[in-house]
Design a binder for these strands. Sequence first.
DNA 1: GCGTAATCTAATCAACA
DNA 2: TGTTGATTAGCACATTACGC
DNA 3: GCGTAATCTAATCAACG
DNA 4: CGTTGATTAGCCCATTACGC
Lengths: 204, 204
Amino acid sequence: MAEDTYSHKMVKTNHRRCRTKFTEEQLKILINTFNQKPYPGYATKQKLALEINTEESRIQIWFQNRRARHGFQKRPEAETLESSQSQGQDQPGVEFPSREARRCRTTYSASQLHTLIKAFMKNPYPGIDSREELAKEIGVPESRVQIWFQNRRSRLLLQRKREPVASLEQEEQGKIPEGLQGAEDTQNGTNFTSDSHFSEARTW
Amino acid sequence: MAEDTYSHKMVKTNHRRCRTKFTEEQLKILINTFNQKPYPGYATKQKLALEINTEESRIQIWFQNRRARHGFQKRPEAETLESSQSQGQDQPGVEFPSREARRCRTTYSASQLHTLIKAFMKNPYPGIDSREELAKEIGVPESRVQIWFQNRRSRLLLQRKREPVASLEQEEQGKIPEGLQGAEDTQNGTNFTSDSHFSEARTW
DNA sequence: GCGTAATCTAATCAACA
DNA sequence: TGTTGATTAGCACATTACGC
DNA sequence: GCGTAATCTAATCAACG
DNA sequence: CGTTGATTAGCCCATTACGC
């Protein structure tokens, strides 16, 4: 049992969240609301959450999936220019909040960020248990923790395509001059049949 | 016991590098060199590497450990003002490089960075095998991959203490107003006895 | 204004019927 | 196996908008 | 000049004798 | 159970110094 040769509490809590099971009753209400406004604001979702006794984040997910799978009238703005809603976009004077207000922006303190980043480094893809634990530790709802991790990963992956050309070359990169770079490890040849998984065929 | 519930090739290659065993012969040479200059430059280390047939990075480590454990004469610059070396620091005209030249700076291409970052997100603490694999994949010596990961983690952990005060407060931060933040998850109470590991007693 | 939390889509994973 | 909740990246930087 | 590789210290982990 | 190679963070931003 030489696996898990870690001293850390490698509890490996990487389960995903339990699949929520909606009752007929709940679904009826959800669908009904969806047909009225497929892009509900925070208030609406909160109300729904209370009404059908479910976390607001689950409702959020449900709406996302619903939108993605069952086509609906149209996007809320730039509609098919049909019914109501004053499509004039920038109708001056009244400031029409075509979109319902969203959830208030969460602000994280330094120590909260500390904890989050530390956890991120341990595992950028925390399971539901880790997230719950983190949430409790820093005192925010778990859904916010999840969102934070998503955004964080996004930002990190952004740097991948950042730092662009610097000047004007992007030719080959698997061809280091050879003789300086690859002139290492010529003894102790632990060649270990490298079954390189995740090759993934770059196509640059 | 339900650990490692991953579909990914969780080969768990988190072993550390094999402990290098130096022979008497090698040690003699190392110690000898150390006594002459405890802070060897790249050229010296490279030469040593060739001489005792060992990776340069291992020599680097050996010198670090040696310096940390066995006291030695002094720091290389601002010496005990003894022998040669023209200590005049800024002796105009000749530009004396008191320190021996270091290793040439490695520049990573965009695709190399892509691969590295991707790997970083999968696991910020890759074992020797993963690093070797990465090294082969992007065509740099493994030691450089290791260094890259170190620096990367460092930069990430930096942001922890970044974004400081914004204006002028740093009082309590474990005291969210309560009543807005923690007002979630009141159903589906999976309380799961939270044995919060890594508490680590902040002392701010 | 900037930084970044919130939101969204498209795709995929995966549990459950 | 299809349905559907959960999760993820965001492919020359996903988009939007809010707080400080 | 900035960005970031390279380097360093202090501490800790861990294999091996 | 000490020795010593390997690894890690870097406690108001580890330090240094190159390449572009």
